[in-house]
């Protein structure tokens, strides 16, 4: 059981290093997916939201981590 738990954790760890960043990115993906599916977002706007949301989440996370660590 312990080995299985470790294996599952290891597998999740392949994709998630920082939980907050992963959740934010998944949030952006769900938002883009929902808005596109409902037809309430134009294609180019959806692309912009997808790219800007992901990059924004990454930059905020990196800058926050840097300011915390080096303070």
């Amino acid at each position: 059981m312990n080995a299985l738990t470790r294996a599952v954790r290891g597998l999740i760890g392949l994709f998630i290093d920082d939980g907050k960043l992963a959740l934010t990115v998944i949030g952006v993906l769900i938002l883009v997916g929902l808005l596109t599916h409902l037809g309430s977002l134009d294609g180019s706007l959806a692309m912009a939201l997808l790219v800007a949301g992901t990059i924004g989440a990454l930059l905020v996370n990196v800058i926050r981590t840097a300011s915390k660590v080096k303070r």
Partner: peptide
């Protein structure tokens, strides 16, 4: 999955490049 995988590597590489 690729996005989560890639962004995890990118974040780590950025923090290492910045000396964090």
């Amino acid at each position: 999955l690729l996005l989560l995988f890639g962004i995890r590597w990118l974040r780590k590489a950025m923090l290492r490049s910045a000396g964090v």
